[in-house]
Design a protein around this nucleic acid. Sequence first.
DNA 1: GCTTGAGGTTGACGTGGCGTCAAGGTTTGT
DNA 2: ACAAACCTTGACGCCACGTCAACCTCAAGC
Lengths: 240, 240
Amino acid sequence: MRIGELAALVGVSTRTVRHYHHLGLLPEPLRLSNGYREYRLKDAVVLARVRRLVELGLSLDEVRDVLADERGRELRDVLVELDADLARQQEAIGARRARLAVLLEEAELRPDSAVSPEMAEALRGLPPGSRFAELDREMLALVDTAAGPDERDEFLAMLRPLMKTARDTGIYARLDELAEARPDDPRVAGLAADLAGQLTGEMAALMVAHGSEGGWLDEMSAAQREVFRVLVAMLKERSC
Amino acid sequence: MRIGELAALVGVSTRTVRHYHHLGLLPEPLRLSNGYREYRLKDAVVLARVRRLVELGLSLDEVRDVLADERGRELRDVLVELDADLARQQEAIGARRARLAVLLEEAELRPDSAVSPEMAEALRGLPPGSRFAELDREMLALVDTAAGPDERDEFLAMLRPLMKTARDTGIYARLDELAEARPDDPRVAGLAADLAGQLTGEMAALMVAHGSEGGWLDEMSAAQREVFRVLVAMLKERSC
DNA sequence: GCTTGAGGTTGACGTGGCGTCAAGGTTTGT
DNA sequence: ACAAACCTTGACGCCACGTCAACCTCAAGC
């Protein structure tokens, strides 16, 4: 047999056969005087074993290990591990399909909106025209696209009462007023104190723990950042 | 935000972010005077959208297409196709796991044998010591490893009565005698005729159809090949 | 003989989605 | 002052081959 017949017999390409030679998975057969490789049935048997293992999902390195050990024991272990791996893959795909189904259902219900209905309601809760509220809008959009539905709903459940109170008590407006102010503006301390009074314990703990993460302060003006710096300091003191 | 914060926020590596810049999936942000990229929340929102699509299984090219079209229609089609693709993958993995389960069960039953019990019985049916039967043994091993269990059993069911008759009537011994003979040996014609008489209609049709495939003749001696050449000629004539 | 087509040979590059150096510059903390 | 942890660009590595290049060999038809 020449390489093309062997490849056709087992159902692979000649390139694959040569690749396996290169990796030492398949021994190089005799060469004819013209340089052609001459195969025998034994080679087809070995190649078929390699392919069976490959098609089960083993990497070529793993196939070589299995063929090297050659005495059943190793093979069983590899196959068991492989089965577990496949099971994980199946689960992962199932999870993705579940998320897909949610997405498709939502897309069916609201074909034109870019955000989920829960998020849309939260966005309506923000005061229009506020530059500062724009920051919150972006954070909400980030959570909407980056987190799963469960995480998102949990997040919203925590934030929405806070946002509602902040809007109703004019917090956004007072923050907007600080857009051009300097960090030592006299309005900063009062605003921080009012904010501290509105935070639930859960939110306060979160802010103390993750206050400097995520870069959510970076787009505020200096005075606005100062408000939150003072706020975090107050919360820390309160929790001691 | 600098690139590390952005990456940590969305949960990817900085290399990934730069890769997306390179591919144009994510717009390059402003640079600070030191050359650092400076990100804003908007960028995190876009990156998070990209990641969500990627994690659903879209290729980066597909993500770019979806982001370019941007108007829901395309997205839904892609997602539907993706779901079908995932379903196919799930099925494929299921099939592999089924084959794995068969393998493991067999390995449990016969931890030391390299071939299946059906195959072992077929091998015992071949006469020991026959050089020619060695060829059949290799073919059977090839089928055992290359084909699935169903194909294998079908193949065996067809071949085993033939092999049994061939052994009982001394066909293997007569083929072995031709190992060193020349193609015009007088025993060739008689052997071909006896073989023709033993073949079932199904086998005869198979030999006429695929007689020259698979290279199964290559390892025989010239006289042995001649036997099968004459045999195929006889079968062709008989079927006309 | 010549051509043509279908095989074969080695070698090298391409694929996708980044990981992982290398060789520098910047910022931050002690 | 110096280390540690950032940032920059550029380039190679991974896996299992596909694909092309440039060349050789063999059988068939003119």
